[in-house]
Write a protein that binds this DNA or RNA. Structure first.
Length: 425
RNA sequence: GGAGGGGUGGCAGAGUGGUUGAAUGCACCGGUCUUGAAAACCGGCGUGUCUUUACGGGCACCGGGGGUUCGAAUCCCUCCCCCUCCGCCA
């Protein structure tokens, strides 16, 4: 959420952001409601001041045993008028708040302006020793590998839950678990994160705070009976850990890493990159979340990207880093890098991580502040998160890049101790 | 799911309709004292919002929402959360 005062003072910047992000929030309507609300407020508050004063007088009169009927009758009228104004003000405010939730965050000045993902900018790429993009003739895709090695079962997943719910079998299941543990331990040991194991179902306040609702509501699963949402990412519960809290400056930066299953309806995306692991309704992800002081958040963003890259380097997986253009930038983000891993079978890059700085956009919704030691004032923290990483897309690259001519999978060295085997055959 | 108890400022904890935004203690900040520190003493110390060039002023907030009243932390309704006991259960 943006600061209403900021919108009031910089409507053109906000409108530009709405256009750049291909959103359709009605800034003019917001400004109109804002003005109306303030007008109603000042009128109602003047009357309340009058009423408060009179009520004190009445209290005094009664204490002295004097008659206060006249004053009471007069205030009764004033109270009626206040009630009327309050009701109108509340209606306007509710509408205003609803509209505000649809205003996207403003892209950072360093974000390239563009209409969609085709305008994203490749920042760098990293390729293992001796790697080349030439497709070897024996290369199978992850579906074929999963089937021939009996480590992935999409058909039975579809039977028990529907398409997009893969089942990991045998060494496939173990490898998935090894990958998760490796990534968690790596971030804890080398990057200074504290592990969180969060709830996988959260309430609507949490979903609103991180920005999933209202905009992405249809992409979320929902347990109506209990008013709970299965999380689309650990970002939601972990960022919300400190919702409505005032942190001390010396607690910052806070760095959490969390594994969670992630649940996404992916409504309307059928047929689009939906093969196998490329788009699923449930997947596993290790997520990094940071709460930091505003002045450090862009440095922290670079660090979080590099933390995710370290995993890919350790696993020897070819990847590239993209800086998203305004048109591809998510609703809540001010700046975002994607990490894409190479799939030799698909002959293309696959998004495996997304690292974003939300500045104070989420903190404002979640009401997460800290007290600045210099000014003694409360300020909103900046929040960031990055996948470190999502296993499904990563698994595609991992399997495909490590297959041998005779159809085996060589397990990358760092995962062997976790998996307990060196090869899948 | 059933029965009972409870949610007040950073924390602890008073307060049951009329100068209570809220006693008191702790914590915190400034000062006096001290070579320094501690103790003691003095003073300060919530958030949001509206208004004002500014100083300041208004309003709201005692878990959330609604109601009664001239007036609500205090009374009523409703929801949420926490604790204890019972039931069920991985």
């Amino acid at each position: 959420m943006l600061d209403l005062k900021f919108i009031r003072e910089n409507p053109e910047i906000v409108k530009q952001a709405v256009r750049d992000k291909n959103e359709k929030a009605d800034v003019d309507e917001i400004l109109k409601l804002d003005e109306e609300r303030r007008k109603l407020l000042s009128e109602a508050e003047a009357l309340k001041a009058q009423r408060n004063k009179a009520s004190q007088e009445i209290g005094k009169l009664k204490k002295e045993g004097k008659n206060a009927d006249e004053a009471i009758a007069k205030m009764k009228e004033v109270s009626e008028r206040i009630k009327e104004l309050d009701e109108r003000e509340k209606k306007v405010e509710a509408k205003l708040k609803e509209l505000l939730l649809w205003v996207p965050n403003i892209p950072h000045e360093s974000v390239p302006r563009g209409k969609d993902e085709t305008d994203n900018v490749e920042v760098r790429r990293w390729l293992p020793e001796g790697f080349n993009f030439e497709k070897k003739p024996f290369v199978k895709d992850h579906l074929e590998l999963g089937k021939s090695l009996k480590i992935l079962d999409f058909e039975r997943g579809a039977k028990i839950s529907g398409s997009g719910f893969p089942v990991y079998v045998g060494k496939g299941a173990t490898l998935e678990r090894a990958l998760i543990n490796f990534m968690l331990n790596y971030h804890i040991a080398n990057h200074g994160y504290t592990e969180i194991f969060p709830p996988f179902l959260v309430n609507s306040d949490s979903m609103r705070a991180t920005g999933q609702i209202p905009k992405l509501r249809d992409d979320m699963y929902y347990a109506e009976k209990d008013d709970l949402f299965p999380i689309p990412t650990a970002e939601v519960p972990v960022t919300n850990l400190h919702r409505n809290e005032i942190l001390t400056e010396d607690e910052l930066p806070i760095q959490y890493v969390a594994y969670s299953a992630c649940f996404r309806r992916e409504a309307g995306s059928y047929g689009r990159e939906s093969k196998g692991f490329l788009r699923v309704h449930q997947f596993n992800k290790v997520e990094m979340v940071k709460l930091v002081k505003p002045e450090t958040s862009y440095d922290e963003l670079e660090k979080i990207v590099s933390d995710a890259e370290d995993i890919l380097k350790a696993l020897n997986i070819p990847y590239r880093v993209l800086l998203l253009s305004t048109g591809d930038l998510s609703f809540s983000a001010a700046k975002c890098y994607d990490l894409e891993t190479w799939s030799p079978a698909e002959n293309k890059w696959l998004e495996a991580s997304s690292c974003s700085n939300f500045e104070d956009f989420q903190a404002r919704r979640a009401n997460i502040k800290y007290r600045d030691s210099q000014t003694k004032k409360l300020k909103f923290v900046h929040t960031l998160n990055g996948s470190g990483l999502a296993t499904s897309r990563l698994m595609v690259s991992l399997l495909e890049n490590n297959q041998t001519e005779d159809g085996k999978i060589i397990i990358p060295e760092p995962l062997r101790a976790y998996a307990g085997f060196d090869v899948i055959e």
